[in-house]
Amino acid sequence: MPLASNTIKGDRLRFYIKLLVYSTIALSLVFLDLKQHTFAPVKEKLSSLEVVVNESFRPLKDWLEDFSSHFASNVELVRENEELKNAQIYSEVRLQKLASIERRLEELQSLLKLRNQSPNGMHAVTVIAASNSPYDQWLRVQFTREAPIKPGDYLVETKGLVGQVISVEDAQAFVRLVSDQRASVHVQVLRTGFRAVLFGRGKYNSLELKFVPEEVDIKVDDILVTTGMGGRHPYGIPVGKVISVDPDRTSTFSRIIVQSLASPSSTNSFIALTGPIGDDLYPLDKSK
């Protein structure tokens, strides 16, 4: 123990002596430099060397500066881009919302115009549910309790016939769309006046005019309207437009596919025809 202790003490003493010596030299150098300017010539010569050294490191420093500024500007750009993207998404959402409101407003305006033609025979209904099944085409609509909506009434929108009320419960009605497989409408070709029965095909907006002999004059783009026969609905409600006429090789009838004019999937409000309505509900142009 005493030996080790003496060694440590000796090391410490040596260290402090060295520190004292070096510190003295350093202080002397500081004094000489400040008071006598002894190192001024050396410094001047070295300053040129320093310039050379700095110049040799200049490309590295420049590169570092460029890199840092490039990185900083990139970060700035990314942040700005992110902010702009968020703003754009927000604007797009607002724009779509506005467009939707505008469409809804137009739809309601046109429905109101339609309803004004016969306020007593027509009542507004609103969709509360729709079929999710591809095999069933139906809607559940709600109406005011005062509205005398009953099974058998037809549902229309500004473009044409939508479907028929099948059952009524409280202030709700179950409506079968014209495109349902079980639906059928007595229609007339607007151009020629030919009458036939239009059946739903169980597909969205797709109908078929059945049992039409091949020799009957029916062309693509012909408009089909309700006949008004039977007194359940007026004459002239547009139902569909012929999109294809093909001869059926297995029979003497043509295979006529019709596209429904109404688009119940994108509309929320309809009009139920509940009473006697004139035949001039829809302005028809027979030349079309």
């Binding site: 030299i25 202080l27 150098l29």
Partner: peptide, 28 residues
């Protein structure tokens, strides 16, 4: 100590600063 003293002098000379100041700083 000798090494840091020398390093201090190098910094002082190359940096054009007061000679011995960095050496003293590193020693401390």
């Amino acid at each position: 100590l000798g090494t840091v003293f020398l390093l201090g002098l190098i910094v002082d000379f190359l940096g054009g600063q007061i000679i011995g100041l960095h050496a003293l700083k590193y020693l401390f």
